[in-house]
């Protein structure tokens, strides 16, 4: 338990997590305000539309998560940490837990904040969370942010450099997954199994209007919760690689 406190102190005694959290919240709620304000007709506003900025928040949260570990390598505090607690796997798992929890909280605040802001801008709109899909769309954001944070911490642990790690997670989730579709014949099939696409499917599947209920790659192979499980398994695999490598590596 004291290790959780250690990582909490470390994370929150620097400025970057606070800034990242603020930027993530500003971006998501800002987009929600923008989208709902530009709609002429309140009935056109859907729950899915309020979450337009969700992916921007996700990017910022992944940057925060990657920085949480890469700055430790950058400033050498990882050595002090391993000196104080030689069980490296325990250290990294605890750090991942703390970062993922914070990411999850940011995700929930961002999602419900966006939803609330939209309702304030368009009070006449029908934004009730009436279906399981709509609940996943809003409340599921925290789960996706938390798991994406695990991926980002793992990548940060492996790459150890802030710029490299951030570039990798952002380019991967924003660009590489979609570019896979350009591969002839099999591209679409591969894309359906891409982790961040799966994460998106968890939130967007089953939405009747506004969201991209239809995946650009066609029918998704898994249901929403299985997709989330797939994304979680992906995060676990990357994390396991990071743990094994860190255990063996000199710091």
């Amino acid at each position: 338990m004291s290790l959780l406190a250690v990582e909490r102190i470390k994370l929150l005694s620097t400025r970057s997590p606070w800034w990242c959290a603020l930027v993530a919240l500003a971006l998501t709620t800002g987009f929600a305000a923008l989208v709902s304000a530009t709609l002429s007709d309140a009935s056109g506003l859907t729950v899915a539309l309020t979450q337009t900025g969700s992916n921007f928040g996700l990017m910022v949260v992944m940057v925060m998560a990657a920085l949480a570990i890469t700055t430790e390598y950058r400033f050498g505090t990882i050595r002090s940490t391993f000196q104080a607690v030689p069980n490296r796997s325990l250290v990294l798992l605890t750090k991942t837990t703390v970062v993922a929890l914070l990411a999850g909280v940011i995700g929930e605040l961002a999602a419900f904040g966006s939803w609330g802001v939209a309702k304030l801008v368009q009070p006449a709109s029908d934004l009730g969370l009436d279906s399981a899909a709509e609940w996943r769309q809003v409340a599921g954001t925290g789960l996706i942010y938390a798991l994406a944070a695990v991926v980002a911490v793992a990548v940060g642990t492996l790459v150890r450099h802030s710029a490299g790690a951030i570039t990798l997670v952002l380019i991967w989730s924003l660009l590489v997954e979609k570019m896979v579709m350009l591969i002839p014949k099999v591209g679409g099939d591969i894309y359906r199994w891409m982790p961040f696409n799966m994460a998106g499917h968890f939130q967007s599947s089953g939405l009747s209007s506004g969201g991209d209920g239809t995946n650009p790659a066609g029918d998704m192979p898994l249901g929403p919760w299985a997709s989330l499980g797939y994304f979680a398994a992906f995060a676990a695999v990357v994390m396991t690689v990071a743990l094994v490598v860190t255990h063996r590596r000199d710091v």
């Binding site: 005694s13 400033f75 050498g76 050595r79 002090s80 104080a84 607690v85």
Partner: peptide, 27 residues
């Protein structure tokens, strides 16, 4: 106790916070 490099400190963390997490880690 070891001092290998005095620069192994996060520059934006206060001296007290730096020692606090270290103290916490070893109860």
């Amino acid at each position: 106790g070891a001092l290998l490099d005095a620069k192994w400190v996060h520059p934006n963390r206060s001296a007290r916070a730096h020692l606090q997490w270290l103290a916490k880690s070893n109860a």
